[in-house]
């Protein structure tokens, strides 16, 4: 494993008086797939959203691929750094958040053309390549409204990939899906992982964590309480809260 591509240092986040992230430090090497698990309210989504500054950290710093941004700052320079870090990261949301007034293809080429100033033709070529790899090229001229949840999420993944990010962030990408549609999205994510993308995935899908992740981090009450390979974690959880989480998953499995 190389040097860390994501580096979180002493991150704190408050929502009003609520201390939701407590002095988090974390390093993710390139090409690693990290799953963040934990009960709702544990701070895992907030941590993920701090990485691309959808949530502004209260304190501490985030570094992605050499761009280091301190939390809690303001001003033009800070905004530029946030912009730079967002270009390094792609994000996939629970609710897909495709643009409903644009076709699938327009959704995917919008940011490369508008934000990166990519040539339209080149953007379309890249977009079609990525849509093909998530199995959605055949719907490129449809509007999102006419797609199933699983299809929307696959388009959202292609949209994020077409910005050519260094790190992909997934915020509960399958939580809004009907059970029978979860598999197709997880398969696409697995494919992205196998192609060597660095990934941070907030998820409840323990099966995915066990099979695809290189590393599983468990969060509770705004802290990282356990950080291990999936084998170690599922075989011998150290923290009782991790054990409870895994037991619940096992009982749901049968």
């Amino acid at each position: 494993m190389g040097s860390p591509i994501v580096q979180v240092s002493h991150l704190d986040k408050y929502f009003g008086r609520l201390h939701v992230l407590k002095d988090i430090s974390l390093e993710v090497p390139e090409r690693q797939v990290v799953c963040l698990i934990g009960r709702s309210g544990s701070g895992k989504s907030t941590l993920l959203r701090c990485l691309n500054f959808l949530e502004e950290p209260s304190q501490g710093s985030i570094e992605v691929d050499g761009i280091k941004v301190a939390g809690g700052e303001r001003g033009r320079e800070h905004r530029q750094l946030v912009h730079d870090i967002r270009l390094k990261t792609g994000m996939v949301f629970q609710e897909f958040n495709l643009f409903p007034h644009m076709t699938v293809l327009d959704n995917v080429i919008e940011a490369p053309v508008i934000v990166k100033g990519m040539d339209r033709k080149a953007a379309i070529e890249l977009a079609e390549q990525n849509l093909d790899s998530v199995g959605m090229l055949f719907k490129k001229d449809e509007y999102p409204m006419r797609l199933s949840g699983g299809q929307k999420q696959r388009v959202a993944i292609a949209r994020a990939l077409t910005m050519e990010p260094r790190v992909m962030l997934f915020d509960e990408p399958t939580s809004a899906l009907d059970p029978e549609l979860i598999g197709e999205v997880l398969n696409v994510m697995k494919k992205v992982a196998l192609e060597g993308m660095t990934m941070l995935v907030v998820t409840h899908e323990m099966g995915f964590a066990r099979e695809v992740a290189d590393r599983v981090i468990v969060m509770a009450e705004g802290e990282l309480i356990e950080d291990a390979t999936p084998e170690d974690l599922f075989k011998a959880p150290k923290d009782p809260r991790t054990k409870a989480l895994i037991d619940r998953y096992r009982s749901g499995e049968q």
Partner: peptide, 24 residues
């Protein structure tokens, strides 16, 4: 979610308004 998606893709607030929010 539309604003967040646009922001995550690196759009500025102005681009988000004219390309994503206003048309809808």
């Amino acid at each position: 979610g539309q604003r967040e998606a646009a922001a995550a893709l690196g759009m500025t607030p102005g681009q988000t308004m004219t390309r994503v929010i206003l048309p809808q």
